[in-house]
């Protein structure tokens, strides 16, 4: 089982890593620093809601958030495995990491559908 499913996890890791590398720094900077510190004006609530409800925006947000979670799951799993030498807990770690990312994905889907 392990040998057949690894490329699948790797592809999610790779896609998430690329999306995160391209989009997360600027998103974090704008929403987490520039707007809260008053360097940029916060866009009006109605405008943000309208933009986020666009089907393309929903798809983009879903992929960015979900794949970022799977990117973490795969990378963190191997960090624990190699870095902390937790080789005997391999299965437990995999279940917690990919399971956590799946829970996050369901939450993202639910939130974006009900937006």
């Amino acid at each position: 089982m392990k040998t057949t499913i690894e490329p699948f996890w790797w592809s999610l890791f790779g896609a998430g890593g690329t999306l995160a590398a391209l989009f997360i720094p600027i998103t974090l900077f704008i929403n987490g620093l520039a707007i809260p510190l008053g360097w940029l004006d916060a866009p009006a609530y109605e405008n943000v809601l309208q933009l986020a409800r666009h089907p393309l925006a929903r798809t983009y947000l879903f992929l960015l958030i979900s794949l970022s979670f799977y990117h973490w799951a795969h990378r963190f799993r191997f960090t624990l495995y190699d870095g902390l030498q937790l080789k005997h807990l391999n299965l437990l770690i995999a279940v917690i990491c990919y399971g956590g990312a799946t829970v996050g994905t369901i939450a993202a889907g639910y939130t974006l559908i009900n937006l």
Partner: peptide, 28 residues
């Protein structure tokens, strides 16, 4: 290891962003 740990911050921010979207859906 530092490079591998960046994944925590990537997912951490994705979670914050998701919570912001949830707040957006809950109302002004």
């Amino acid at each position: 290891i530092l490079r591998e740990l960046t994944s925590i911050f990537v997912a951490g921010y994705a979670l914050v962003y998701l919570l912001q979207l949830r707040a957006l859906g809950l109302g002004p």
